[in-house]
């Protein structure tokens, strides 16, 4: 990974976040809700509205408002929530940390399960193991997350009473209980992700095993284990990194459903609440934080890709 590449990649990330911030600002400008109106209520006189608009800076040209807003955000001030009258930033970041915990643990579980499963399915191509793995993968892909979530909750919480059905407990307060509360949502997300990753891993492993350099490695007299782990695995993992990065995008958007079902106060839920109450600063902060997280994840994925594939480094 050359430094120039890294710098260029980071610049691209910053650029993405800036463009997204413009979009977020523009969209919230178009929204029918007028901040002054919603703050003062229906009985406000035009004079009161004008005064408040001037105070909030709403009468300035849009680009000035944007720069003002962006400047504040750059210094970490996301504004005051209209709903709770509390600063938006800390609340959103706390919510984000919960969602990230959920996402990262789900991805770890997925990688631990799906990569070996995919490889095994490829090695046993056409045999019973392969069919079984593929079948489970298809199930995972085809069931919507709320169905998977409900089924798992019915089984593990309501019937077997192994896990709590809903709620969130911070790992810092009570690690054991925190993990128990995390288990069901992580399991639900993992089932879906594992389905993606297993199928990808299986087909990539099959492709790589057919390649000339694998044949060359075999004909050099290397044992099959070495061929598989040293020569095939790394190359088969490359596209999986891309899939995972895309899945993170899916998770950040789709996590709302999971958070609703399992009552986890994460970023998805916070954004839902903000939208239903037309809490403008919270909507802006939530959308921007999600986009920034996505941009950072993609950059991390690119770096992981560059680490795995030496051909990327000097690009």
């Amino acid at each position: 990974m050359s430094l120039a590449w890294l710098v260029r990649r980071l610049m691209l990330m910053v650029y993405t976040v800036i463009v997204v911030s413009m979009l977020v600002f523009a969209i919230t400008q178009i929204l029918p809700a007028d901040a002054a109106q919603s703050l003062l209520g229906e009985n406000a006189t035009p004079e009161m509205l004008a005064a408040l608009r001037a105070k909030l800076g709403l009468d300035a040209p849009a680009w000035q408002q944007y720069l003002h807003w962006a400047g504040r955000i750059f210094s970490g001030d996301f504004g005051i929530s209209m709903r709770t009258s509390q600063p938006v930033g800390p609340d959103m970041l706390t919510a984000l940390s919960r969602s990230l915990l959920l996402t990262v643990s789900s991805i770890l579980v997925t990688l631990l399960v799906a990569v070996p499963l995919g490889v095994v399915a490829a090695l046993r191509q056409g045999k019973l193991t392969d069919t079984g793995v593929s079948l489970i993968a298809y199930l995972g892909v085809s069931l919507p997350e709320f169905v998977t979530a409900t089924l798992l909750a019915l089984l593990l919480a309501d019937t077997l009473h192994w896990l709590p059905a809903t709620g969130y407990v911070s790992l810092l307060e009570d690690f054991g209980d925190g993990i128990r509360h995390l288990a069901l949502p992580v399991l639900t997300i993992s089932v879906i992700l594992i389905a993606h990753v297993v199928r990808m891993m299986r087909s990539e492993t099959l492709d790589v095993l057919k390649s000339d350099y694998i044949r060359a490695a075999r004909l050099k007299g290397l044992p099959e284990r070495t061929v598989l782990f040293r020569h095939a695995l790394r190359n088969a993992l490359l596209p999986v990194v891309t899939i995972i990065a895309l899945d993170v995008g899916y998770l950040l958007g789709g996590i709302i459903v999971i958070e609703e079902i399992f009552a986890i106060p994460g970023i998805g839920r916070a954004l839902m609440v903000a939208i239903t109450t037309r809490d403008l600063p919270s909507i802006q902060a939530g959308a921007l934080i999600m986009a920034a997280t996505y941009a950072v994840t993609n950059t991390l994925a690119d770096m992981a890709y560059a680490f795995l594939d030496p051909r990327i480094r000097y690009d």
Binding site: D212, Y213, G221, N235, L308
Partner: peptide, 23 residues
């Protein structure tokens, strides 16, 4: 594995695909 590479070697047609790109 004790014959291939050790007693019977092979040189391939296309060197660009016979080497592992990530090693």
């Amino acid at each position: 594995t004790k014959i291939r590479g050790r007693r019977l070697g092979m040189v391939f047609q296309d060197p660009s695909t016979a080497l592992n790109p990530t090693l």
